[in-house]
């Protein structure tokens, strides 16, 4: 039986990679990919901890739910990125700094 800590390590690695991508990439798509990494790290955690709820399979259920939500989110995010591109002619998130004071 694979100990749970292995899953968690992989999941943490995934999360970190995703986080890194979100913070450093100069491309919105890559940032989006980074977000997907992090969601998937969470999903992996759900699945791994599903081991302790074998009767109702809450972990698996939540994982599915999160995957669906992530898919919907990506769709919305891509739509935003498209609009950003239209407006700024760039998808570099450092260029889109109109929130600045």
């Amino acid at each position: 039986m694979i100990p749970i800590s292995h899953f968690m390590l992989i999941s943490a690695g995934l999360f970190c990679i995703g986080l890194y991508a979100v913070l450093t990439r100069r491309n919105a798509i890559q940032v989006l990919i980074g977000i997907e990494f992090m969601i998937n790290a969470a999903v992996l955690n759900f699945v791994a901890f599903g081991r302790y709820d074998k009767i109702s399979g809450g972990g698996q259920m939540f994982a599915l739910f999160a995957i669906v939500l992530a898919a919907a989110g990506v769709a919305v995010a891509l739509a935003i990125i498209l609009n950003v591109y239209k407006y700024f002619k760039s998808i570099n998130p450092t260029k889109t700094d109109t929130l600045r004071d």
Partner: peptide, 17 residues
């Protein structure tokens, strides 16, 4: 403190982190 208000999401995120 104004420096933090850069308008760049990634900075905000970094700060949050």
């Amino acid at each position: 403190f104004r420096n933090f208000q850069s308008g760049r999401l990634q900075h905000y995120l970094t700060t949050m982190l």
